[in-house]
Amino acid sequence: MSTQFSLDALPYVDKQIDEPGARSIVDKMIAAEMKKMPKPRDPASLFPDIELFKDNELMQQELDRVRRGKPMEQLDLTRYQLHAPTSTDSTSTSAPSIDANGSPLSVQPSASEELPEGRAQWTQALENANAQLEHQNQRVLNLELVQKFGNNAWNIHNYQLEYDLSRLRKQVDDKRAQVMELNKLRKRDQLDVAESLHRLETKWGELISSTIQVEMASATMEQELEQLKQYEIKLCKELSVPLPGTEQQ
Rank of each mutant, 00 (worst) to 15 (best):
A194V: 02
M180Q: 15
E181M: 05
K170G: 08
R65F: 09
N128P: 00
R68A: 15
A111V: 02
P85T: 04
Q136E: 07
A129D: 01
S218K: 14
Q124T: 10
E222R: 14
Q136D: 05
Q124D: 06
M72Q: 11
Y80L: 15
E127D: 13
Q248N: 10
I50K: 08
P40S: 09
Q81K: 13
S87F: 03
W154H: 11
L133R: 12
E206F: 03
Y159V: 01
L168V: 09
S87R: 09
A100Q: 07
M216G: 00
P48N: 06
L63N: 15
Q16G: 03
Q213Y: 05
Q160N: 14
K187D: 03
L185N: 13
Q178E: 15
K170V: 01
C236V: 03
S110C: 10
Q4A: 04
T202Y: 05
S166A: 14
E127I: 14
D173I: 04
N152T: 12
S92N: 04
N56S: 15
G150A: 04
E201P: 00
L235E: 12
G102I: 03
M216D: 15
G102C: 03
S196R: 12
I17G: 02
D174N: 09
F5D: 03
I233F: 07
A153Q: 09
L115M: 05
P242T: 06
N130G: 01
V66D: 04
S210L: 10
L63E: 13
Y159C: 03
K39N: 09
M59P: 00
I25L: 12
Q108K: 12
R119E: 09
L182R: 11
A95Y: 14
A153P: 00
A111L: 02
D174S: 07
K35F: 04
H135N: 11
E181D: 13
L239N: 10
M221K: 14
K234Y: 10
L133K: 13
M1H: 08
S112D: 15
E33G: 08
I212C: 02
D55T: 06
S112G: 06
P244K: 12
E62I: 04
S209I: 01
N152F: 06
S24K: 10
T88D: 14
P116Q: 08
Y163S: 11
A100T: 03
D164G: 02
V140N: 08
L228N: 09
L197H: 11
S110K: 01
N130T: 05
C236E: 11
G102S: 08
D164F: 09
L161I: 15
E247P: 02
E134M: 09
F53S: 13
R139F: 05
N183I: 09
E181P: 00
A111H: 01
A44V: 07
L105R: 08
